[in-house]
Computed example of a mutant assay.
Amino acid sequence: MDSVVTPPAPAFDKPLMHYGKRVLERTAPGAAPAEYRLMDIRPLTPHIGAEIAGVDLSLPIGEELATELTQALLEWKVIFFRDQHAFDPSAQLALSALWGAPEANPFFPAADTAGVSRLAKDAMAVGTENIWHSDHSFMAAPALGSVLRAVEVPAAGGDTLWADMGAAYDNLTERMKARIEGLTAVHDWVTSWGLTMTESQIAAHREALPPVEHPVVVRHPRTGRKLLYVNEPFTTRITGLSETESRELLGELVLQARIPEYQVRFRWQHGSVAIWDNIATQHYAINDYYPQRRVMERIAITGERLS
């Protein structure tokens, strides 16, 4: 009989390799599987991301379809739609209203329709999106989610990735879970958005947007699932730890979003729409399309305080 090889124990809490299978659950433990009658679910990975077929988002959304869309978003964390060519800003606002009121980002210019932010990137926008993040985590009540539609896409490139932060939490070592239980972290926009501002511009925004604290591990407000809630640009330190310990711990935690097994990647086409759960995921817009243009219109959905 072949002997079983036991990998050596790592000398620190961050092993260089992952041994054994990962825990990649699509839903919170004990959640009943959802049923769908009005649309076709086409998974892109086993646990995060699915394309939805059979739905025209430009038409009024009835109560039963709204329920199924909500179920799909909670189950898959990010859902995608193709060929939504009649889906205009008014329909986008109506769709986002299924989850809540639109939330303005104070650093984005708005399009003609209130609540819709136009995100235009071209040759001069090199490097401005290349970081894993959760939208508006620097706010006391971070955005619940977003609805993003493709207006102009490059012939190649410009994909977006999302990472499942429930899976990121599930696959932490038990030692790490115990270490971060009950900790809170400071989230701030100055170290990211503030890099392009003058001191007077920072001061003008600071009164309305002071640093905030969120738990390092939050429970999803709709499902109760435990999620890792720190991200690279906005989480600046862990409360109560020394600067050295905070930096070391954050350095390990923020890297969890970069693990491919937790991710889904979406190739945009004209008429594509994505809806994502901003608490359960982080995302990363790939800026590889120089010198082509990429124009998207986004509505963020107002969230609530996390616990």
Rank of each mutant, 00 (worst) to 15 (best):
E51T: 15
D188A: 12
V230D: 06
A34C: 13
A94S: 12
V230R: 07
G30A: 09
M139Q: 15
R26K: 15
A257H: 10
A11R: 14
N231M: 08
F87D: 07
G194S: 01
P233Q: 06
R294E: 13
A91Y: 02
V254W: 08
A140C: 00
K14Q: 12
P46L: 05
F266C: 07
P211I: 04
F138D: 06
L255R: 15
T198Q: 02
I301L: 11
G49F: 10
K226G: 02
T6H: 05
L74D: 11
V216W: 05
P43H: 11
L195Y: 00
A34G: 13
I299L: 14
G100Y: 04
K14A: 09
V4G: 00
S90Y: 04
G303L: 10
L95A: 07
Y169T: 07
R219L: 10
L249D: 07
L144A: 14
L119T: 10
F107G: 04
D83V: 01
R82G: 00
R149G: 04
F80L: 08
R247L: 13
P33N: 08
R26W: 12
P211Q: 09
S146Y: 02
S134F: 00
S96R: 01
I279C: 07
L144E: 07
E232R: 14
D2N: 10
D188M: 05
A143D: 08
L227M: 14
I299T: 15
R206P: 04
A97W: 04
A9W: 02
A140K: 06
M176L: 13
V151E: 15
E243F: 06
L24P: 10
E207A: 15
T239H: 09
V212D: 08
P8D: 14
E261T: 08
V126C: 00
W99L: 05
G158T: 06
L228I: 13
L44S: 10
A104E: 13
T302L: 13
W76R: 01
A91K: 10
A208Y: 05
Q292T: 13
Y289P: 03
N287D: 15
A104G: 02
Y289Q: 03
D170I: 08
R179F: 00
A140Y: 00
L119C: 02
F80H: 09
E64A: 11
P221H: 07
P210N: 11
T302S: 15
R305H: 08
F81L: 03
F107L: 06
Y229G: 02
Q71A: 06
A86N: 14
F266G: 01
L16I: 12
T302C: 12
E174W: 05
D56W: 05
D164P: 06
M39W: 10
P15H: 12
T198N: 03
L65G: 01
E252W: 14
L65D: 06
R298G: 04
V116A: 03
T160V: 09
L65Y: 08
N278K: 07
V116E: 07
R175Q: 13
M39K: 01
S134Q: 11
H283T: 11
A86K: 13
R267P: 00
S146L: 13
V151R: 13
M165Q: 15
D88F: 02
D122Y: 03
G157L: 10
Q292W: 11
V55Y: 05
